[in-house]
Structures are given as structure tokens and as C-alpha cells.
């Protein structure tokens, strides 16, 4: 599986993951609170100019914005009809700069560094029973489960095909669930048997 990270040796890449996240959060608040149109346009340009600084290809900007382009266009069109061109422009500028700024953090920070910071930030989950060692285990298991599940799904679909099961392939979800729940139960036993300390 590919992470979204793009490896380059830029100063932005070298910044710590935690500080980049904090700066992007502060920047996001600023973008949401800023009202004048010229300032919003300036912010968008400034954020976009960070991409060459990070030695990311211009294509990265396009790719970061692609997922929100359609909904931004729809929202701007709606604003244009409801509130006029100024509102429409500021809505579009705001969404594009927010997404561009936060995407920059994702594109310039290694997945492992990001996971480090986020799992540390998620320490309060211990109150719900997911202590840091268990969260770390869960992260690893979840990433490993994705290809396993894909394989299980293919097996079930092939079994359905082999016996010419009627009905949409969607009906494979039921057996798939039972199969993976059973597998997960057994996996839990296996991990416990290998000495994972449950009291942590």
C-alpha cells in the first residue's frame, strides 16, 4: 500500500512532524477567521508557493486539490446564487487554502513519523481501554488486516462462483464477516499465547 508521502530533501521535510501539524492547525484557524478577499487570495498563493519550497512537483498541488474541486465548485455556485460573487470567491479560496496547507503536511511527513505523533496525541484513549501499547498493536494489525481481508473476500466470491450462488455478490458480506470474526478471535488467542501483556 502506498502512503501519500513524497520523499524530498527540502527544509519543510526536515521539520518535525509535531511542529508541522501544530503550524497547520494554527494556519487553518487563521484561514477560517480571515475575512478580506485579497488576504485570502494572498494566503492561497503563499500556501501554494510552499510547494516549490518543499520541492514537490506542481502536479502535487493539482492532486491535493482534486478531491475537493467538485464540491468546492458546487458550493461556490450555490453561494453565487445566494450571496453574490464576493462570498462565492471567499468560500472557494478558503477551502482550497485549507486543503492545500494540510495536504502539504501529509505530503512532506513520513507515515511512521505521522503515526508516532498521532498515537502520542491519542493517549487519552487509554481511558477507554486502548492504552498506548494496545493502540500500537491495533495500528499494526489494522494495516496488516487490509490485504488479508481482500484475500478472504476473493475466496468467498470464488466459492460463490463455484457453486453458482444466486443473488448479488453483495451477499458475500455475511459469510465474510463470520469468517473474519472467527479468524480475529483465533488471532487474539495467538497473540496472548505469545506473551503480549494484557495488563498494559
Amino acid at each position: 500500500m502506498l502512503a501519500l508521502y513524497i520523499h524530498r530533501g527540502s527544509p519543510i521535510h526536515r521539520l518535525g512532524a509535531g511542529s508541522k501539524i501544530l503550524v497547520s492547525i494554527a494556519g487553518s484557524f487563521a484561514i477560517v477567521l480571515v475575512k478580506p478577499l485579497w488576504l485570502l487570495a494572498g494566503i492561497l498563493l503563499a500556501v501554494a508557493s510552499l510547494y516549490p519550497v518543499a520541492r514537490l512537483p506542481l502536479r502535487a498541488i493539482a492532486r491535493a486539490l482534486k478531491p475537493v474541486l467538485l464540491v468546492t465548485a458546487a458550493l461556490s455556485a450555490l453561494q453565487l446564487a445566494l450571496a453574490g460573487p464576493a462570498e462565492a470567491a471567499s468560500t472557494a479560496l478558503r477551502i482550497l487554502s485549507l486543503v492545500l496547507l494540510t495536504s502539504l503536511v501529509t505530503l512532506t511527513t513520513r507515515l511512521s513519523d505521522m503515526l508516532d505523533v498521532l498515537t502520542r496525541a491519542a493517549r487519552p484513549l487509554a481511558a477507554l481501554g486502548l492504552s498506548p501499547p494496545k493502540l500500537a498493536l491495533a495500528v499494526g494489525l489494522a494495516i496488516r488486516f487490509i490485504p488479508t481481508l481482500l484475500q478472504d473476500l476473493q475466496e468467498i466470491q470464488q466459492a460463490r462462483l463455484a457453486r453458482r450462488a444466486r443473488g448479488p455478490s453483495l451477499f458475500g458480506i455475511g459469510p465474510l464477516m463470520v469468517k473474519i470474526l472467527r479468524m480475529t478471535d483465533a488471532l487474539g488467542d495467538a497473540i496472548a499465547a505469545r506473551g503480549f501483556d494484557n495488563r498494559k
Binding site: L141, F145, L150, L181, T184, D185, G188, F196, N198
Partner: peptide, 19 residues
């Protein structure tokens, strides 16, 4: 929380990803 519970949590994170 049992190991099984941790495994179930991971499982449904993966199920959501798979979907």
C-alpha cells in the same frame, strides 16, 4: 480490554478501509 477486543478494533478499522 482483552487482546481479542484490540484485534476486533483493528479488524473493523480495516473493514472500513476495505469498504
Amino acid at each position: 480490554m482483552r487482546i481479542q477486543d484490540v484485534a476486533f478494533i483493528a479488524l473493523f478499522a480495516a473493514v472500513t478501509a476495505l469498504l
